[in-house]
Amino acid sequence: MFCKWESIVLSIGIIMEEPLDLIKLSIDERVYVKCRNDRELRGRLHAYDQHLNMVLGDVEETITSSEEDEETGEEIISKRTRNVGMLFVRGDIVVLVSPPLRTS
């Protein structure tokens, strides 16, 4: 099975055996979460599980939507943001999770 790969040592020197280890390393850190439907979340990762259900705190949600201008037919892209103190994300809408860029 895949999980029997020899461990890969990340550039930061931490041994990662499976992809979820990357999430484990991000606990209590601010993370970026890209979701389906052009939604993005930035917040502190409090908890997660194997489905990638997550609890985030101090969250900024960005929703990108595009509409077609009725007169010119041009595509108008609009971004809305809002802040939420604490939220639960269901794992199945998650596309990507990225920890903050580590300053080297």
Partner: peptide, 11 residues
């Protein structure tokens, strides 16, 4: 760009 990133399996 992301330093590290996790892509969920069933997307």
């Amino acid at each position: 760009k992301y330093g590290d990133c996790f892509i969920r399996g069933n997307n």
